[in-house]
Amino acid sequence: MPATKDTNGTWSSRFYIINHKGEKLRKRKRGFKTKKEALEYEREFLSKSNFQNTMSFESLCEIYFEDLQHRLRQNTFLTKEHIILKKILPFFKKMKVEDISPAIIRKWQGKMLSAINPTSQKKYSLTYIKTINNQLVAILNYAVKFHNLNENPCHKAGSIGKKNADEMSIWTLQEFNSFVTLLKHKPVSYTGFNVLFWTGIRIGELLALTVKDVDFKNKNLKINKSYQRLKGEDVVTEPKTPKSKRVIEISDFLLEIIKEYIDKLYEPTPDTRLFNSTKYRFEHDMKLYSGKAGLHRIRIHDLRHSHASFLINNNVNILAVSQRLGHEKIETTLNIYSHLYKESHDYMMNILNNKD
């Protein structure tokens, strides 16, 4: 149906759709400034409803989000959503899906490669660039699989970024000790950082730990949940993968640190969170006290890499490392840490070749 002008000078869009029951329903939306806007709304609504590739990229993203939010963990969905809304949608927003060509994608890729991170005032890392590009690939793969897009133009455009960083940022045991010693006056951070370094668990797993997760008799930690602060609310979910549910053996040294910490808590119950805090506290203290210790700055997640490096350099086999970290497949561990095994091998061969 044509757009009509209302008495207040704005335009209305009126048209019919067929719902999933085969019923003919009339749709109407008022308040458009121009006739063109009213007609464009009708065209876009019908394209989206019928999953036609004449719909805008923005409409495709809306459908994609609706599909994903019921299939992913909340924090995973929010991460994807943030990348798409901030790094992808602004460029492709009004384009028709069918008009997005490899050349257009390469133009967007060029913008991403030259973009400046407003926080660091530096270009984004190539691993982050790879993550952004992968999100665009996933959206258009979704359109190919479910909405009859002939092919994904990203495949012809080629990829950008790197899957893995050139070098892994870690701390040695000596570097960690010089850092954590400065935090003895802050029990939450001191205990938390020791647990992170000596177990290799993720920050979300640390923040979800409760008193009953510490088994002093059998000397282990039970990892069965993860904590995030999402949109101002505390959210405790299942761990990242099924294999992330695990029991980690811990040393007498670490047990003693944890015991002293729990003894100072006010009337803890078995369900009391050990670290009633957020990731921000640990990020802040890592930045501040690594600077005071004169160390190169690493991320909290790099303490997990530091733990793995410590184990590998002390000849712990790859299967044990993989199980301790909670990786779903041993291949994941090998892909991340294979270079460390090569360094250990080179060191061994150097010793053997110089035995005299």
Rank of each mutant, 00 (worst) to 15 (best):
P2F: 11
T4N: 06
T4A: 08
K5H: 04
K5G: 05
K5F: 05
D6V: 13
G9S: 08
G9N: 09
S13N: 10
R14E: 14
I18Y: 03
K21L: 14
K24E: 13
K24N: 12
R26T: 14
K27P: 10
K27W: 04
R30H: 15
K33H: 12
K36E: 12
A38F: 11
L39Y: 06
Y41K: 05
E44K: 02
S49G: 10
N50M: 10
Q52L: 12
Q52S: 13
S56K: 13
I63G: 03
D67W: 04
H70F: 11
N75C: 07
F77N: 01
E81D: 05
E81H: 08
H82G: 09
H82W: 13
H82D: 11
I83M: 08
I84Y: 09
I84F: 09
L85D: 13
K93A: 08
K94S: 15
M95L: 14
V97L: 15
E98V: 12
R106W: 12
W108C: 04
G110W: 00
G110C: 07
L113V: 10
P118R: 12
Q121C: 11
Q121G: 12
K123T: 14
L126F: 11
K130V: 01
N134Q: 15
Q135V: 00
V137Y: 14
I139K: 15
N141I: 00
Y142G: 12
H147V: 04
L149V: 13
E151Y: 09
H155I: 14
H155F: 14
K156R: 14
S159K: 13
K163Q: 11
A165R: 09
D166K: 10
E167F: 10
L173Y: 06
N177S: 11
F179Q: 04
P187L: 03
V188P: 03
N194S: 07
N194L: 05
L196V: 01
L196F: 04
F197M: 02
R202I: 03
L207P: 03
L209M: 03
L209F: 01
T210E: 08
T210S: 02
V214P: 02
F216V: 06
K217I: 05
K217V: 07
K219Q: 06
Q228A: 15
E233W: 07
V236M: 07
T237E: 15
E238K: 15
P239M: 02
P242N: 07
S244F: 03
R246C: 10
E249I: 08
E249S: 14
I250E: 08
S251H: 08
F253T: 14
L254F: 02
E256N: 15
I257Q: 00
Y261H: 01
P268R: 10
T269S: 13
L274T: 00
F275V: 02
N276W: 10
S277H: 15
S277A: 15
Y280E: 04
Y280K: 12
L288P: 00
Y289E: 06
K292M: 08
K292I: 04
G294M: 01
R297A: 03
I298F: 09
I298T: 12
I300V: 15
R304S: 05
F310W: 08
N314R: 13
N315W: 02
V316F: 03
V321K: 00
Q323C: 08
Q323D: 13
R324Q: 02
H327M: 03
E328W: 07
E328Y: 10
E328G: 05
I330V: 15
I330E: 05
I330W: 02
T333I: 06
N335T: 06
N335Q: 12
Y337G: 13
L340F: 09
Y341V: 03
K342Y: 10
Y347F: 05
N353S: 06
N354P: 01
